[in-house]
């Protein structure tokens, strides 16, 4: 009897330990991904020109407005605004989908590190101290 109880406890604890996963497959996440994917074609040249940078908290910032031709500056700014709205919504949605709205900042910072890690050579990214660094 005791043996079975022990086995049951062990099995249960294994199952519970294995559930360290994050839920990211929600309709909201999919549509945010699609929206950001569509915008990336326009953002990419701005990253390459050094006009935009990736912040540590998982957002995009206009780092050097002078690198954008004057005629495009307005549209670039609104592009960045839309991108940051999507990103904020993405982090919030992942936190919410996992039942922990308070994780939003942690998720944003985790994404921040990963966007920076995956940024291409020549792009500008924010260092831990907040300074900009070209990869």
């Amino acid at each position: 009897m005791k043996k079975w109880l022990m086995l049951g406890l062990l099995a249960l604890s294994c199952v519970v330990q294995a559930q360290g996963n994050l839920e990211v497959n929600t309709p909201a996440v999919s549509s945010l991904k699609a929206s950001m994917q569509g915008r990336f074609a326009q953002l990419e040249p701005l990253f390459a020109a050094g006009a935009l940078g990736l912040t540590r908290d998982g957002r995009v910032e206009v780092r050097d407005p002078a690198a954008i031709p004057l005629a495009q500056r307005q549209s670039a700014t609104s592009l960045v605004g839309a991108e940051n709205r999507d990103r904020t919504a993405l982090y919030r949605e992942i936190a919410r989908a996992n039942g922990h709205p308070e994780w939003e900042a942690d998720i944003a910072n985790t994404f921040g590190g990963r966007w920076i890690d995956k940024a291409r050579a020549g792009w500008w990214v924010q260092e831990a101290g907040g300074r900009w660094k070209q990869k």
Binding site: G20, Q37, F40, W115
Partner: peptide, 28 residues
């Protein structure tokens, strides 16, 4: 295990999820 899952932020799982999403958005 229960406490870990319910209270602490699963950093490793979050990094994996971030990688998957970023690869899709940037089409890496």
């Amino acid at each position: 295990a229960c406490v870990t899952i319910n209270i602490y932020f699963p950093a490793a799982a979050a990094e994996m999820a971030a990688d998957r999403i970023i690869d899709e958005v940037w089409q890496l």
